[in-house]
Design a protein around this nucleic acid. Sequence first.
DNA 1: GTCGTTTACTAGCATTTTGCAAGTGGTGGC
DNA 2: GCCACCACTTGCAAAATGCTAGTAAACGAC
Lengths: 121, 121
Amino acid sequence: MAQGKNSPVGWRSECPISSGLDILGDIWSLLIVRDLIVYGTRTYSEISQSPEKISTNILASRLKLVTTLGVNERVDADRVARNNAFRLTKSGKELRKVLEELGRWSHTNLKEMHPTIVGME
Amino acid sequence: MAQGKNSPVGWRSECPISSGLDILGDIWSLLIVRDLIVYGTRTYSEISQSPEKISTNILASRLKLVTTLGVNERVDADRVARNNAFRLTKSGKELRKVLEELGRWSHTNLKEMHPTIVGME
DNA sequence: GTCGTTTACTAGCATTTTGCAAGTGGTGGC
DNA sequence: GCCACCACTTGCAAAATGCTAGTAAACGAC
């Protein structure tokens, strides 16, 4: 992940696609978003149990990053972490279309290489 | 990038979003696709000159991977590499929507953090 | 209240991937 | 043939990742 010193992100260019990828261009950030889209709210341990098995340090650092970036937030802004789940902000919810298109693409184009891939709900 | 021994990709789960990210969940693969969407065809050196400055070894490995996966191909299938550009296959072209949605999202949601970001054409 | 369990992390370290710089080898133009 | 150039490859330092283990705080049971 590209990090700068002032911004949490080091922007590689002014292209919107490249900039989106500077933030979300890794597997884990978008899988966190996916979990929150599917389940609405999700705690730290629930996310860590999803089938892709993200390791705890990566989960912590990614949650911190996407929260800083305003993609998700705590359900109870002022409560302590325990059982205080995460949910998407308005910005995060707008990623649904991106993930839907990606899921659709994968389902139609990866079936041959990955026969057990499931469809989009 | 997750690699297996039989498939060029190690699938983390059967989720289509996760599987898409197993292939394209890094900055560089999708930036290559972006270049090919914008310009149609593009040679190795042209891609390496794009503003995000991908390094040559990563470019070579990513081109190999996405070509193996059938996302892009050589313009002249049987000719030698020199001046033989890459272009997207049907599968690759179908990624346009994914990138468009990502670009749209970035433009509306990252403007504050990244003021010089440009809009989608 | 205190004891044990659970949750949400952090820390340490081996492995993998990245990024940079420099090198190589085939090609096409002259 | 010679030379510039394009498409890579190689080597190595630095960063990110993936395990595994550890810890602190909070909740529940009693």
